[in-house]
Amino acid sequence: MSHAWEGFTARHAVGDVLDGHVAKVVPFGAFVEVADGVHGLLVGSERPEAGSSVSVRIAEIDHDNQRLRLTAS
């Protein structure tokens, strides 16, 4: 488990709202960096542009696979 992931999940929980940076846009959503080395998948109908800043809510934390599912806040 990465130190970035461990530190992030120790400080944050489902429902938290965070500011992030859109790292990559893909057909099914966008990957948002919410902390150094921690990315989550933003799902929904709106597709932000790569490089933009967004406000997201943590919808799910998958500890086993170190994945975050995010929604627009």
Rank of each mutant, 00 (worst) to 15 (best):
V34N: 08
L41E: 03
V43A: 15
R11T: 06
H12G: 02
E49Q: 14
S55E: 11
P48F: 09
V32F: 05
W5T: 12
Q66M: 14
L42G: 13
R67K: 14
A30M: 03
S55N: 08
P27A: 10
V34W: 08
V34K: 07
G15A: 01
E33H: 07
S53I: 12
A10P: 01
S52D: 07
D36Y: 14
R69I: 09
A35S: 11
W5L: 13
A23T: 14
E49K: 15
E46T: 13
A50P: 04
H12K: 02
D64Y: 00
V26N: 06
V56W: 05
V43D: 02
G15E: 10
I58K: 06
A30P: 15
S53T: 14
A35Y: 07
I58G: 01
H63N: 12
V43Y: 01
D19H: 03
G7L: 13
A59R: 15
E46A: 15
L18W: 12
H39M: 03
H39Y: 05
V38P: 15
E46Y: 05
V25A: 10
D36Q: 13
G40R: 01
V56T: 06
G44H: 06
R69L: 08
G20K: 03
N65M: 01
S2W: 02
W5V: 09
G15P: 15
A4I: 02
A4P: 02
K24D: 12
V32G: 13
S52N: 02
R11I: 08
R67F: 01
G37Q: 10
H3D: 11
Q66E: 15
G29Y: 00
S52E: 11
V43F: 01
R11L: 05
M1A: 12
F31G: 14
K24M: 10
S73N: 08
D64F: 05
I61W: 12
T9G: 06
G37W: 09
G51D: 08
E46Q: 10
D16T: 09
L42P: 14
V56Q: 01
T71P: 03
G51R: 03
F31Q: 00
G37M: 04
V38N: 04
L42R: 00
A50C: 00
R47N: 08
T71A: 12
A30E: 10
D36H: 10
K24E: 14
A13Q: 15
R47S: 03
R67V: 00
D16R: 02
V32E: 06
L18V: 14
V32I: 07
A23V: 13
G20Y: 05
A35D: 15
H21R: 11
V26Q: 03
R11H: 07
